[in-house]
Design a binder for these strands. Structure first.
Lengths: 154, 154
DNA sequence: CCGCACGTTCAGGCTGTATTGAACGGATGA
DNA sequence: TCATCCGTTCAATACAGCCTGAACGTGCGG
């Protein structure tokens, strides 16, 4: 692996770490981002110099999140991974899902708090409304983007 | 602190943890979210049953991020904290900033990789374009939201 | 039926970080 | 000037999670 690629994968590892994900997951993602073809677990383990166990776990994790796609080739027992073709909208979906968890907690609080003041109730309700507004706006923007970047798909 | 509030603050702690932030930061945020008035460091430490050192560090951290606001009262040496009034747009700004780091790394990769294939180059460029598109869309949505939620402000 | 090549799982070591108690600096008021 | 009350900083500890090597299950080929 050349120096520029190593630099990029390491940086992705740090960025993923800052988002609460394992560093290796970020490095896998980074490596596949700059890979032309899908890569097998062995290729990933060797390129990144990490154990196959980690690669297996983290690659599957990323695939579950929709960041990667598992590619199967006929007459080949290897699992190959590649960045998801609709990576961007998947990422946005994931972000909205994470925000939704916050909003659910806020909604539960608004419903179960014993004696919320008017200000607190308004604050919580305001957060929920803003979230709903954002879901619409971002969803619409992603749709527009997808239509622009991949006209005719679906 | 009543059970519903404790439940909410703990949940916020877990959600913050999943985002790569200290749990106590989330609990502070949660507690201030359902607090009518600004709270002092001592109040926070007692309510959440944590050391004042942690409260000091994490509250300042959140204030730096724009999530909280430090409130000063005349003739009172205490520091008070409250959720930022423009919490939502601050949160969005922070999210865009984090995405920007990814995009910067992608841009650097596109410029420094020794022999990127056409597919890889297109992928990286596509990511950068999508990010720029999203910054615009989200920025515009936040503006619309701010104008709707706080008409007349500035 | 055996050998091999995969991917997965799991206990254990290890590193990084959150949290704490204690010490510190600064400002205020007597 | 001293005593007190803040908030901050720091070394030390506890803890959580990542990563790994080895063992396991599975399916294919000989």
């Amino acid at each position: 692996m050349d120096a520029a690629t190593t630099h990029f994968t390491d940086r992705m590892g740090l960025l993923f770490e800052a988002e609460g994900q394992p560093p290796i997951a970020g490095r896998i993602f980074g490596y596949l981002m700059v890979s032309d073809d899908p890569r097998s677990l062995d290729q990933l383990a060797e390129a990144l110099d990490v154990s196959k166990a980690s690669v297996s776990t983290n690659a599957r994790r990323l695939a579950d999140q929709g960041v990667l796609e598992r590619v199967c080739r006929p007459a080949d027992r290897h699992d190959y991974y590649a960045v998801a073709p609709d990576l961007f909208s998947r990422t946005m979906e994931g972000r909205l899902r994470r925000w939704q968890r916050f909003t659910e907690a806020v909604g539960e609080a608004r419903r179960t708090l014993p004696t919320p003041s008017e200000r607190v109730r308004g604050r919580l309700r305001g957060y929920e409304t803003a979230y709903a507004y954002m879901v619409d706006a971002i969803g619409a923007a992603v749709d527009r983007w997808e239509r622009r970047a991949r006209p005719g798909r679906r």
